[in-house]
Amino acid sequence: MTDIRDRIRNIIAEQAMLEPDQVTDDSSPADLGIDSLGLVESIFALEEEFDITIPFNANEPEKSEFDISSMGSIIAAVEKLVAEKA
């Protein structure tokens, strides 16, 4: 699963205009300087990369089944969706 983890990190790093190693598991999208539109863009990029559908509504991010509170939770949620697809 490290492969998935690296691919996610690369996508988020590109969106945040940071180096992948600066994207740590405990950082939130806001910590990385990703605003609401950047978040929607990141989620689209993750969907395209892994051919998954991420349930996310920008109006109630905290209520979405997809937890975006930190990089760690995003990675876990994407891994789960990828596993469900397989």
Binding site: I43, F44, F56, A58, N59
Partner: peptide, 20 residues
Amino acid sequence: EGLRVMSRDACRPFSANRNG
């Protein structure tokens, strides 16, 4: 849909549980 600002169930302006 791409913007993820649309509600899937109802339009509830000003209501705390509004979702798009």
